[in-house]
Write a protein that binds this DNA or RNA. Sequence first.
DNA 1: GTCTATACAACGATAGAC
DNA 2: GTCTATCGTTGTATAGAC
Lengths: 200, 200
Amino acid sequence: MTHPKRRGRRPAGEDTKAALLSAARAVFTEQGFDGATVRTIASRAEVDPAMVNHWFGGKQGLFAAAIQLPVDPEQIRMTVHNSPPEEIAERVLRTFISVWDDSSGGGFAALMRSAATQESAAKLLREFIATTFGTRLRELGVDHPDLRVTLFGSQLSGLGLVRYVLRQEPLASADVDTLVATIGRTLQRYLTGDLGLGGE
Amino acid sequence: MTHPKRRGRRPAGEDTKAALLSAARAVFTEQGFDGATVRTIASRAEVDPAMVNHWFGGKQGLFAAAIQLPVDPEQIRMTVHNSPPEEIAERVLRTFISVWDDSSGGGFAALMRSAATQESAAKLLREFIATTFGTRLRELGVDHPDLRVTLFGSQLSGLGLVRYVLRQEPLASADVDTLVATIGRTLQRYLTGDLGLGGE
DNA sequence: GTCTATACAACGATAGAC
DNA sequence: GTCTATCGTTGTATAGAC
């Protein structure tokens, strides 16, 4: 018995890379950036820990390659694009909540844990929000589109924060309709409503 | 001059504890929980690293003892208590923004970095929001006071997140009046306005 | 009780052998 | 391309000096 894990040596690099990426996504999601260890990821991928450095330049690089949004970007983009202006907020909110609730907020909490520390995660989040919603708002021709996008992002991420990270009741267990009535209305105002800025 | 660094041994335990607490606050604020090291904190306090274990039971315990809100709780409590109901949101928002902006958001970002990972930080934040605003709302006799509090918290923390952690423009550089007009109005609705829940 | 000194296992990372 | 050996650093535990 030479090796209970692997016999000789591994054939190709693509397998190793893919296995590491997949394991990294799982472990980073469960433990966050600092909580995850290179050794854990490598062992789950059945690969030598040194491969992380070899293929991704280190833990940081592996994280940047593995990090992904806690929603399907294309699904959101389609929802945003195909909804009549006055329904965008409600539809997007329902989509986010159903996805986040399904994973017990694990995906969102993981991204949040990392966004606070890792610039790569913060950048991903910034750019997703800016492009997805910014494009649609410019199409609609509303005033202050960029400000609206960030206001929208602030309320949406704040909801995720209180509901999935802080887990503060009763918002943590509120049903979707309650959230749509309260927060959905806010989001819709940020997108297409009167901001109260006087000008324009 | 008896001790520029430290000659023989330290006089009392209270000095050591206080020095560690003070150094811990600084280092945790700058680096977050995971970024800070026990050795760095101890060296800044001019104390042996083992004292962290002796006095606080470990890094975790030191953090729990050192963590504090990124605002003066008493100042907020007074603002909340002395404002007429329809002005609470604006006044509180102005207070938070001025304090956070003064420290370049360092205090908020630090708490956020830790709140995502450390249960003790999350708890601190939860309880501060719940007691400070919950008490006042019950006084005012509005419906769904607890839900209102968490809605309020979600928008306020979301603002902090986008403005100080993600640093997304134009919200990151928006002036106070813009924030009051846009987000202040949301906060006020969450506190005393119509939530749109139908009942009552 | 208060503190110093030292030891330890686990971490991220690297150099170089195969 | 892959892996072993090893480095410096981390959090923590322990022994013992005063």
